[in-house]
Amino acid sequence: MTTAVLRTEVDKLRSLASTWWFLGITAAVSLALSGFGVRETAEGQEPGIADVLTGPAFAQLLIMVFAARSATMEFRTGTIWASRLAVPSWYRLLTGKAAVVAGLAALAGAVLMAGGLAVAALAEPTARLTPDSGLDWRQLLTVPVAFAITAVIGLAVGLLLKSGGATVAVVLVWSLVAEPALGAAGEWLLRVDIGAWLPFIALSDFQGQPGGTPFPGGPYAAGLYVTALAVGLLTAAIRLQERREP
């Protein structure tokens, strides 16, 4: 039954033209930004891997929106109830959906990371694109992982809010506005420096993105922490769905 649930979720995504459009546009934007990233490096600096990854960093946000939409669309169209009749367990249904969405996100991350490097090599042949440090390797190899984590977060928020518009607003405003603001002003507002503990800031440290706040325990602990948060949010969303009456 588990394999059947996973195949079903793959079928659902594959059978919609919007899936392919969305992924296509995300890929185009990401690859273009990777190319521009190495072409438009600040004067005096050598273009490198971090510049290539501006593309996937933006794509990560789009994939989070895509994941949220994969949940909200089912509730909006009523398809979720047909799914529920076919798989009469919220736990199996929604973890299957999360697994497929996370898997697709990870695959997209790997493709965009590799594709970004290829585009960058064409756009700026002098760029330093070969990883030659632990940080370089971490920056590249955490891209698929980070995509999967943010996809699960987006899906979980979508399950909690059920509204596409509200979900997109919440995840984007949180990641782009609220977290940076809390990170900068948290100690002043709350008397506690919570910056490193905010999920997207912690994820940024895990990915080795420059200019971030170091996580206590190091970047790999940050990765484990954000993974646990994503799983916890998904679990809470599933539990709440089980308790809600349709």
Binding site: A4, R7, T8, S15, A17, S18, M73, W81, A82, A86
Partner: peptide, 23 residues
């Protein structure tokens, strides 16, 4: 229960296909 429990942009065959695969 409700004939509208379908995605409007999915074809009839695709809708039934994912239902079939699920079981």
């Amino acid at each position: 229960m409700d004939a509208r429990w379908t995605h409007p942009k999915r074809s009839a065959g695709a809708h039934l296909t994912w239902l079939a695969r699920s079981n």
